[in-house]
Nucleic acid binder design. Structure first.
Length: 943
RNA sequence: GCUCGGAUGGUGGAAUUGGUAGACACGUUGGACUUAAAAUCCAAUGACCAUUGCGGUCGUGCGGGUUCAAGUCCCGCUCCGAGUACCA
């Protein structure tokens, strides 16, 4: 559209400079320079089939601006990009079409790269990584092996080799070992250990390893044919696709992230992440302080261990509830209750997670017929089971104190169990009393009369003395399931000998993903890798061989599960530092030089997934001395999502008649129908001819509108292909150019805020760039002059330098754009075309609109790119003016701003006169006898 | 339910963190230049009253409070968004 007009030909300019940057390797970062380093990281994208929409680049633009700014400021900037290229959509496409996921992935990556390049990002592409690249996942597999070879030692509070553990076991058994382990590991002596057979030994060791195989209750999604992690489930259905999720027992690899719970919590204090994000991680880790208490069971040797945050209410226990899944339930159930209990357990298992969640109000449970004994009073406490108690939190058993906990209260009321009030001066006739702050304990033997805190301390002391409990800390954070029944993921480098997993070694890696004919699970229900014809491990040749060679002596079957999506993304940021290294996952020198990420940009949707898991791996690799820091991202910014504005037309039910939005009335109901937003103009008018061509169903439809103007209804939603509200950056770039798109996305609002995309305002930003151009050219006449700039124009420039610099530092990019607009407007009005002004202005603008800035820089007569040019420095003396607002401190106490009329001479400010008359009565008293003007522009008033 | 955010013109959003609210942009209206359009430029634009005059009143979700001064701080609500959920 503008390509023929004289002046700002953005298409030509942008093409030219993209080629220039590529040819000159302008953005290649070196691993050693005199300059200070600065590492700016984007969360790498999953290359989906639909390409980028205008929402994706928001964070990339912000990080690119900051990268370019930091280069101007003299930093050696590492700003890489790559692809999180293992994942479900490519696999599902493979299931449908038979096309190998690597092919789909490659095509998608090519498209992403084109789109990213189009926007002029200053990535160092020579460092690109892809998680699905064998040279990359080799090291992901290696880290997995390291996790397998280590356990978490509580005494040293770090990961230690499992071999050390074996030495310990051989010497003194496990009674003195203080390590994080799976529940239910027996105590054994050195003698016992030596007597165990290898399988038994391996079983025990698995209970300590940081990645371990265990029979776990998992979230199973039948439609997707895989297990899901807790953070992949939203409201009881799968995040992807929204399918139901049920519980199922499976042998699964897990990561003992729980071992790092406390350090993950503490580490949050060291990093500059948003409060909301830290809070999310804190909640997810869910630390609670309380006590564990053992209850003896009448007539059995078994003890029931419960976790409670309110041990102070121990004397208020009137019954006990166990999770139905606990094995203990079988043992303590009285024969008379057996049928009822079993029926209940069966019913619970069949209910899906969603049903269970939807059913929170209904209280269900069954009496087991067993009784526990109170540790202090010896009272008989009936033991119930109920599905409000979760098997995988705490110990799966609760001591029910109906007077102090609402759920226990409801349960007691429902089954008519006794409620004992142990709070002084409080009625529990209608509900439980759970306020810790005001609670005073009553009817509780040695606790009577104590407030919450003292009662806590005292009861824990008593429990420990009696040997039937202790103070303890519990975390909500569960170990992370690491097996996925999928094809398109990293193979787990393990084979099975006598049912026990055996690790490959580093030299064997990468264990490459085998080819399969079908990407679906096998008919026997094994994961897709079960379809592979060659998926066995020859321990002699140390090679993958055909399955027919399996003899369980020398050749063994390989693991069929693959790793989850978060495996590769948990460490990729270190690979960028040294992407071609074949010897190490990252070279020591490279890691020591770049150290950590100075600024990480990405969406908050990864708060309890990627951002937690990657911190866990970081801490683990740090423990092993492989990485230099314990937290890898010093600062993190969450860019808000750009939302789509969906368009709707309204159909009369059962007809093919559609109404314009302004013809809707309250008496009839209409069905809203989505239409493609690209068929709607800025004033919500629908292009009906376009619509008819868009989908066949509209060809014959009837459209009723007001005077031929058909209006659509609007709604803000997530941008998605299925909602027809996707706006593509390619078209914007074509019409307005990448510089306009970049600045407009920043101008839209604060980077951290979610906001709907609206193309209507883009002309304002585009006009700004055209105005900037016209500072250099009148028609096609070069009008830059060598005149000394006026005081005014210097002031305009330096105000902009000051504002833009401080706003970039604070990531307030939207106000930067405004500052540029003000500056250019002022210079235009002053008719200022001075080289002395335009040169620094161009550098100032270049992080935001790099193409046009480079072009003007060249036309100003510079041979080299301006990328490494120093950022302009503000000269405050230009900012002093005749009238200005200054903050004033009065009596060293109050501060306010006064408008002063200043007279200037060579020495600076000579005289200041108060002009301001606001709050006049007050100021009359406060008006000073004398002014003292100090250099930082604060005017102190003294008497 | 709990935790964390947020609410400012017709719209997106500014406001030096307690000091002239509404910067900048979109949109709208009027004007200039054009045969015309595009492009560009100029002016007006929170609401209400007064415009024969260059002024006044009210205004940052609602109700209180602190202060010479509150969009900003405190107390109590309403609504919206995000996260989480039988977590003992």
């Amino acid at each position: 559209m503008n390509s023929k007009t004289v002046g700002y030909n953005f298409q030509q300019i942008e093409k030219k400079w993209r080629a220039y940057w590529e040819k000159n390797k302008t953005f290649h970062a070196l691993n050693n320079t005199e300059k200070p380093k600065f590492y700016i990281l984007d969360m790498f994208p999953y290359p989906s089939g639909s390409g980028l929409h205008v929402g994706h680049p928001l964070g990339y633009i912000a990080s690119d601006i900051f990268s370019r700014y930091k280069r101007h400021k003299g930093f050696n900037v590492l700003h890489p990009q790559g692809y999180d290229s293992f994942g479900l959509p490519a696999e599902q496409y493979a299931i449908q079409t038979g096309q190998h996921p690597s092919k789909t992935t490659q095509e998608n990556i090519d498209r992403y790269r084109d789109q990213l390049d189009q926007m002029g990002f200053s990535y160092d592409w020579s460092r690109e990584v892809r998680t699905s690249d064998a040279n990359f996942y080799k090291w992901t597999q290696w880290i997995f092996l390291l996790l397998f070879e280590h356990y978490y030692c509580v005494d040293t509070d770090k990961a230690q080799p499992v071999n050390d553990l074996i030495t310990l076991f051989e010497k003194e058994g496990n009674s003195k070992v203080n390590a994080v382990c799976s529940p239910g590991i027996e105590v054994f002596s050195a003698e016992d250990w030596k007597g165990f057979n290898p399988v038994k030994k391996e079983e025990i060791l698995l209970g300590y390893r940081l990645t371990y195989l265990s029979e776990t209750e998992v979230n199973w999604c039948a439609e997707l044919g895989t297990v899901l992690a807790n953070d992949e489930i939203i409201n009881g259905v799968s995040e992807r696709g929204g399918y139901p999720v049920t519980k199922k027992k499976m042998k699964q690899w897990s990561m003992r992230i729980g071992a790092y719970a406390e350090r993950l919590l503490q580490g949050l204090e060291m990093i500059d992440w948003s409060d909301s994000l830290k809070e999310m991680q804190r909640n997810w880790i869910g630390k609670s302080i309380g006590a564990k208490v053992f209850f003896e069971v009448e007539g059995h040797d078994e003890k029931i261990e419960v976790f409670t945050t309110r041990p102070d209410t121990l004397f208020g226990v009137t019954f006990m509830t166990l999770a139905p899944e606990l094995e203990l339930v079988q043992k303590i159930t009285h024969p008379d209750q057996k049928n009822e209990v079993e029926a209940y357990i069966k019913a619970t298992q069949q209910r899906s997670q969603r049903e269970r969640m939807a059913d929170v109000k209904n209280t269900t449970g069954v009496f087991t017929g067993g009784y526990a004994l109170h540790p202090f009073t010896g009272d008989r406490i009936p033991i119930w089971i109920g599905d409000y108690v979760l098997a995988d939190y705490g110990t799966g058993a609760v001591m029910a104190v109906p007077c102090g906990d609402q759920r226990d209260y409801d349960f007691a009321k429902h089954f008519d169990l006794p409620i004992k009030n142990i709070f002084k001066g409080v009625s529990v006739a209608t509900e439980a009393f759970s306020d810790k702050a005001t609670a005073v304990i009553d009817h509780s033997d040695f606790l009577t009369g104590l407030p919450y805190k003292q009662a806590m301390e005292k009861v824990i002391e008593a429990l420990e003395e009696k040997g039937c409990g202790s103070g303890t800390v519990n975390y909500r954070l569960r170990d992370a399931i690491f097996s996925r029944q999928r094809y398109w993921g990293e193979p787990i480098p393990m084979y099975y000998k006598e049912g026990m997993p055996q690790p490959l070694s580093l030299e064997d890696l990468p264990l490459r993903l085998p080819d399969v004919e079908k990407y679906l699970p096998t008919p026997e229900g094994a994961p897709p890798l079960g379809n592979a014809k060659s998926w066995a491990w020859d321990t002699k040749s140390r090679k993958v061989v055909g399955n027919d060679a399996i003899d369980h002596k020398r050749v063994f079957p390989l693991e069929l599960n693959t790793m989850p999506g978060w495996a590769g993304s948990s460490w990729y940021f270190y690979r960028y530092m040294d992407p071609k290294n074949d010897e190490e996952f990252v070279g020591k020198e490279a890691a020591a030089y770049w150290k950590d990420v100075d600024l990480y940009l990405g969406g908050s949707e990864h708060a309890t997934g990627h951002l937690l898991y990657s911190r866990f791996w970081q801490k683990f690799l740090f423990d092993l001395g492989l990485l230099p820091v314990e937290e890898y991202a010093k600062k993190l910014i969450n860019q808000g999502m750009i939302l789509g504005t969906s368009a709707f037309i309204y159909r009369k039910p059962g007809t093919q008649t559609y109404l314009s939005k302004d013809l809707l009335n309250d008496t009839e109901t209409f069905e809203p129908v989505r239409v493609d937003v690209n068929l709607v103009n800025a004033s919500d008018e629908l292009n009906i001819e376009g619509l008819k061509k868009w989908q066949v169903q509209f060809e014959t439809a009837e459209f009723k509108s007001n005077k031929g103007v058909f209006k659509v209804g609007r709604e803000v939603e997530k941008m998605s292909k299925s909602k027809y509200n996707v706006v593509n950056p390619d078209e914007i770039c074509e019409q307005y150019g990448a510089d306009t798109l970049r600045m407009y996305e920043m101008f839209l609002g604060p980077i951290e805020q979610a906001k709907p995309w609206n193309t209507a305002g883009i002309s304002g930003v585009h006009n700004f760039l055209k105005k900037y151009w016209r500072l250099f050219y009148n028609e096609d006449q070069w009008i830059v002059n060598e005149e000394k700039p006026s005081k005014q124009s210097l002031k305009a420039l330096h105000e902009t330098i000051k504002k833009v610099t401080s706003d970039i530092e604070q990531f307030s990019f939207n106000t930067c754009v405004s500052s540029f607009m003000i500056c250019v407007n002022e210079l235009t009005q002053m008719n200022c075309h001075s080289r002395e002004i335009l040169t620094p202005l161009t550098v100032l603008l270049s992080p935001f609109a790099p193409h046009i800035a480079e072009e003007m820089w060249e036309r100003l007569g510079h041979a080299e790119s301006l990328v490494a040019e120093p950022f302009p420095i503000v000269n405050e003396s230009y900012l002093v003016e005749d009238t200005k607002n200054y903050p004033v401190s009065f009596n060293g106490k109050m501060r306010f701003t006064l408008s002063l009329s200043l007279s200037l001479d060579q020495e600076g400010i000579k005289q200041a006169v108060l002009q301001d008359t606001r709050t006049a009565e007050y100021l009359q008293d406060a008006i000073p006898k004398k002014w003292i003007i100090v250099p930082n522009k604060i005017i102190n008033i003294v008497y």
